[in-house]
Amino acid sequence: MTAAGLDKEHTYEIAGITTSPLMVRMMEMGVMPGKTISLLRKAPFKGPMAFLIQGNVLALRIEEADLIQIKEV
């Protein structure tokens, strides 16, 4: 399961990040395995998604969210 398929009101844990040129960018912004992640809201028409990742709010497009693997806490 990836963050792109997250539903609201549930907190998950980041299990890993798919290897891609964006991996380092995500890591440096604090998107790291072991962090908690929950969906805050989605922009209309399959726009970006806003996540709460360990206290910080980050906006990502669905394609980027799809690179974040999550697991149940």
Partner: peptide, 11 residues
């Protein structure tokens, strides 16, 4: 360059 959105929504 790949287009992406990865931005912080600061308080």
């Amino acid at each position: 360059e790949r287009s992406f959105l990865l931005t912080e929504l600061p308080i």
